[in-house]
């Protein structure tokens, strides 16, 4: 109320005017330098001796149009696979992280297995896991072996589950010991303390890095094409092979970026909100 009645002093009006001039100056400078950099880049690329060949084999609108429907159809498979794998990997990661916190001698094998799992699958390259799962498991000729799509998805889940388990564990360890002391002093058991006090705080805290890993998973979902299913990458590969033109890869790449944008946006928003909450609290 009083703010509206307050009339800035001579000095303050001078400061405001100065700041406004500075802002206008910064905006103009930024625009100018962006334009200069853009022009330089365009000249460098299009002026390159091989640009015409590259444009034909990577940026052909005609080829792009021809294979876009196939690639889009493949992308739909990626999207479905992403959703299912992300949910399962998050669940697996949380489960493993929780198992690693179990105490008592009875749980030693469980803890050891959970630890061994995160160590192994964080080190093992995803491509090798996909080959092992998609080609190795069917090789066993067991009855009821699922298809390569499911096996490829399983490879993604076990690999990302190991990463996400470590993120969850970092979150669990970041909860201050005084919170545990408060919970235990109320008579809550260790398990109740984990469930009601530690895990909810841990998950909130690691939401941004978890989402970031989901963005990474979004990209790696394309690797299941190695196992055979026709996803966006595979569809593009078929196009490349048929026309001896790389444009389908560019199309697939652009689509992957577009697919990632909303997820990245959500990640940034969650991160910002977490940062704001942290500076507002305490």
């Amino acid at each position: 109320m009083s703010d509206q009645l307050h009339r800035p002093s001579e000095i303050q009006r001078g400061r405001i005017a100065y700041r406004r001039r500075q802002t206008i100056r910064s905006v103009l400078l930024a625009a100018l330098s962006t334009a200069v950099v853009g022009v330089l880049l365009a000249v460098a690329v299009t002026g390159a001796p091989g640009w015409d060949r590259v444009r034909q084999s990577f940026f052909s609108p005609e080829v792009a149009r021809r294979y876009l429907p196939d690639i889009l159809e493949g992308l739909w498979l990626n999207v479905r696979l992403l959703v299912v794998c992300a949910v399962l990997a998050l669940a697996l990661g949380l489960l493993i992280a929780t198992l690693r916190t179990l105490r008592g001698p009875v749980f030693f094998p469980v803890r050891a297995m959970a630890t061994g799992y995160t160590y192994t699958f964080r080190g093992l390259p995803l491509i090798i896991v996909i080959y092992l799962m998609a080609f190795g498991i069917p090789g066993l000729r067991l009855q009821g072996t699922p298809g390569v799509l499911v096996l490829g998805g399983a490879a993604l889940v076990v690999t990302y589950g190991a990463y996400l388990a470590e993120v969850f564990r970092a979150g669990i360890e970041s909860v201050h010991p005084s919170q545990l002391a408060a919970a235990r002093s109320l008579g809550l058991t260790y398990r109740q303390t984990m469930r009601h006090v530690v895990l909810p705080q841990a998950i909130r805290r690691v939401a941004p890095p978890l989402l970031n890993d989901t963005v990474a998973l979004q990209k790696d979902v394309g690797l299941v094409s190695l196992a055979g299913p026709i996803d966006a990458v595979r569809a593009a590969q078929i196009g490349v092979a048929q026309d001896a033109n790389y444009t389908p890869y560019i199309v697939a790449g652009v689509l992957f970026v577009l697919l990632a944008l909303p997820l990245i946006g959500v990640t940034d928003w969650v991160t910002l909100r977490a940062a704001r909450r942290q500076s507002a609290g305490a």
Partner: peptide
């Protein structure tokens, strides 16, 4: 110990309320 703590209340210097 859980049974013992049920009979004892404790208040800490830094409150230790559950922030969530």
């Amino acid at each position: 110990p859980d049974r013992v703590r049920q009979r004892i209340g404790m208040v800490f210097q830094s409150y230790n309320l559950f922030p969530h």
